[in-house]
Amino acid sequence: MKITLLKCFLLVGALLSFGLMEAQEVSGTVTDASGPLPGASVVVQGTTTGTQTDFDGNYTLNNVDANATLVVSYIGYKTQEVPVNGRSTIDVTLEEDAEALDEVVIIGYGTTTVKDATGAVAAVTSEDFNKGVIASPEELIQGKTAGVQITQTSGEPGAGVQLRIRGTNSVRSNNNPLFVVDGVPLAGDDTSPSGGNIGVGTSTSRNPLNFLNPADIESISVLKDASATAIYGSRGANGVVIITTKSGKGAVGGLFEFSSSLSISKPAERYNLLSPNDFLDAVEQFGGDRNAQNFGSRTDWQDFVTRTVASQNQNLSYSNTHNSGSVRATFGYGKQFGVIEKSDLERITARLNVVQRFLDDNLTLNLQATGSRVNDQAAPLSGSAGFRGDLLGAAYSA
């Protein structure tokens, strides 16, 4: 009996010792050639366990497997993968990434590199854009830039966009930034005419970038602080978003490209409402007249108002580079349907970007032309229509 108990205690002790060896605390310091790096990311590879270094470059991670690998990264530096190998203290020295520092960003008065930029500038190129079904240009960088909040005013196709750079600057004025497309400033206001109130409320605001085809965009730069936006004066008080479209550079010999996508949308949830019999039972339960409220209708107004839809998007482009310039021509067609009846957005776009050099490359001419047609249909749905005026209100009162 005593021998059996002793064996049990030895087994439990061995398991505890093994667990302590497998899951341990790891700490250390992240530095570069000039000293500690505050804000560096330290993550256990293949997991969501991670932390950031403090002001002195120190970090601490708990419950780290003895055979795990730490991934240490920082903007402008080469990412390092360091095996733990049972160690409790791991110090890491990061090296500068020359390619990341030499990355070209678009600013108000031309181009510069990340290491030479003096203002707060964030650039997202086409390689880093969000993938999937993209309905409007701002969705390409949603969640990609620090300090930039991008939301739509509603879920309908072509709905207005709210883009906030470093928070809201005014309580009552417009807080949208200045949009600049290939050097042409655009107002951040609604670009569609406001519909009159014919009993169903006024039309909602629309996205000022609806005329742009997201497939034509090469990069998007966000200028955040006063020094970066100074060239635009008061128009850049809420920040500046610079959109650069694709050119034919690099497509030697001519290149045709075609892309197509299909997406299916449906209402995320259904409201749990009473059936006709349940409603009449409730009326009777609370002292009402069951027969007076029974009009014989059994319409499911959720099915009547909402729908499951398929949206499409096609893009065709031709690019070519020659000795003295480049050309890129694109044509795009897309139609997005909303889950509410009678809501859709049809966009037909054509773009031509030409660069031609003359006089031994001493004179460069750029042509950037675009044509766009947007057919926007919005359902009679508005917050100013009252409970009987709009689509949902009519269903509610039926």
Rank of each mutant, 00 (worst) to 15 (best):
D32H: 05
A68N: 02
L94F: 08
L61E: 01
V71N: 02
K115C: 03
A33Y: 07
V72R: 11
T113V: 08
K131E: 07
A68I: 06
I106S: 12
D54T: 06
K78V: 10
V121F: 13
T125I: 00
T79Y: 00
T118K: 14
V72Q: 02
Q45G: 00
V30H: 03
S88I: 06
G46S: 02
Q45M: 09
N62E: 10
T118M: 04
D97V: 00
V82H: 12
N58A: 10
V84P: 02
T113R: 09
G132K: 05
L37G: 07
Y109G: 03
S41Y: 13
V72C: 03
V105Q: 12
V42G: 05
P38L: 11
I107C: 02
Q80A: 12
K78G: 01
A120S: 15
V64T: 09
D65K: 11
A100Q: 13
G132N: 11
F129L: 01
N58C: 03
T53A: 12
D91N: 15
K131Q: 12
D128S: 15
T93H: 07
T48C: 01
F129D: 03
E103K: 14
V121Q: 11
D128H: 14
T111M: 07
R87Y: 07
G35W: 11
E103R: 12
D32Y: 04
D102H: 11
D116S: 10
I90D: 05
G50H: 00
K131G: 13
D91S: 13
L101H: 02
T113C: 06
T113M: 05
Q45V: 10
A117F: 01
T60N: 11
G57N: 07
V44N: 10
S41I: 12
A100T: 03
T69Y: 02
E81A: 13
T69G: 00
Y74R: 09
T89N: 14
V121R: 08
N67I: 03
S41G: 06
Y109M: 07
Y109T: 15
D102S: 15
T49P: 01
A33N: 05
G57E: 04
F55D: 12
V124N: 13
V114Q: 11
V105S: 02
K78M: 05
A68Y: 10
G39P: 05
N130Y: 04
A66R: 13
L101S: 04
L94E: 02
N63M: 10
D116V: 14
G35F: 06
A123S: 15
V72E: 05
V124G: 13
T53Y: 06
T48K: 15
T60K: 15
I107F: 00
T89A: 15
T60C: 08
D54W: 05
D56H: 07
L70S: 06
T69N: 03
A40E: 10
Y109I: 15
L61R: 02
N85P: 02
T60L: 11
V105L: 04
E96A: 14
G57H: 08
V104F: 00
I75C: 01
I106V: 15
E127V: 09
F55Y: 12
